[in-house]
């Protein structure tokens, strides 16, 4: 008997700054990408600084370096679609249009936060923006996202759920339980593996079998996969359009492996001794998603240096405002201790 393979699809091709842009990538879209990625980066830098000042407590996982993934994917979604992710979630919330003030105020545990200060960095939600968390248990968001996709199908909404997970979460059993049901029931879900090479301090090579091809992990369930340069926002968007269309058209789930990188430690208190400084520096210099987009914008004359400076200034103002709000918003009233445990029957 011949060996059978379910050939996962690779991303159409690797895109670099020099390749011709697809026709749907307008100048306005490029500028939006730039604004959104920069907002995430500046926001996270600010969050890191405020953590250092003791204004943010507990765990704080920064998204710096991975910005192109959420921004590219979000641009391929429609308003009715939903997303959810793990605890490294600030970027996802900003990308789906949640208010930076509300996100930052949740980080500081204030009443103006998205969860009134009761959730913290890892636990925020916005039904209005289709954001379903913010989940603190590694991999738990995957069956939940699959369930939201189940609801989309049950309600015949033609909506898609995007469930983000890290390369570490991909080794949790419940992820494969989800793959099985999603494929069996043809649920409209796109699983986005944000492969930043490290599950906390353990590299993919040390934690994952066949670690260079994690997008194959759905093969046994008949789920197509693709590997994408997650540091190239245009490549991410183009690939996401394929995956989202697949899910939306009723063909079932799709797996996208985004090759990305986080510059900071796993959380604020991680000194990241498991990798060399040179490794981080090399990625920053050669693959940084924001720098790459900057170079593209200048080359294509989409914007000039002065225009870019203005965007930087605007973004900075948004972040400063969120930091101020997050410090001036009052702590939750003590009476809030007992609210929101149960909904009124």
């Amino acid at each position: 008997m011949a060996t059978k393979k379910t050939p996962p699809k690779r991303a159409s091709k690797k895109r670099t700054a020099s390749s011709a842009l697809p026709s749907d990538i307008t100048n306005e879209l490029i500028l939006d990408f730039y604004r959104e990625m920069l907002l995430i980066r500046r926001f996270e830098e600010k969050a890191g600084q405020m953590y250092g000042m003791g204004l943010i407590g507990g765990f704080c996982h920064l998204y710096i370096g991975q910005e192109a993934v959420v921004v590219g994917i979000q641009s391929a979604l429609e308003e009715r679609d939903t997303i959810l992710t793990s605890y490294r979630d600030h970027g996802h919330m900003l990308a789906c249009g949640m208010d930076p003030d509300g996100v930052m105020a949740e980080l500081t545990g204030r009443s103006g936060g998205y969860s009134k200060g009761k959730g913290g960095s890892m636990h925020m939600f916005s039904e209005e923006k289709g954001f379903y968390g913010g989940h603190g248990i590694v991999g738990a968001q995957v069956p939940i996202g699959t369930g939201i996709a189940f609801a989309h199908k049950y309600l015949e909404e033609k909506a898609v759920n995007v469930a983000y997970l890290g390369d570490g979460a991909l080794n949790q059993g419940q992820v494969y339980e989800s793959f099985n049901m999603a494929s069996l029931w043809e649920l409209p879900v796109v699983y986005v593996i944000e492969n930043n090479s490290y599950a906390m301090g353990t590299s993919t090579a040390r934690s994952s079998a066949n670690s260079t091809e994690l997008y194959h992990r759905g093969n046994a369930y008949g789920i197509p996969g693709m590997q994408v340069d997650g540091m190239d926002v245009v490549a991410v968007r183009e690939a996401a359009k394929i995956a989202v269309e697949h899910a939306r058209s009723g063909k079932g789930p799709y797996i996208m492996e985004m090759m990305t990188y986080r510059y900071r430690g796993h959380s604020m208190s991680d000194p990241a001794k498991y990798r060399s400084k040179e490794e981080v520096q090399k990625v920053r210099e050669e693959r940084d998603p924001i720098e790459r987009l900057r170079a593209l914008m200048l080359k294509k004359k989409i914007i000039d240096e002065a225009g870019m400076k203005q965007i930087d200034k605007d973004v900075k103002a948004i972040v400063s405002k969120s930091a101020e709000f997050a410090q001036s918003s009052p702590e939750p009233d003590p009476s809030e201790l007992y609210t929101d445990v149960y909904a009124d029957a």
Binding site: T82, P143, I144, T146, G147, I148, A149, A151, H152
Partner: peptide
């Protein structure tokens, strides 16, 4: 584990 989580997701969505 999988279908309990899937059920919770469906409940989150209403």
């Amino acid at each position: 584990h999988g279908f309990a989580g899937l059920g919770v997701g469906a409940a989150f969505y209403g």
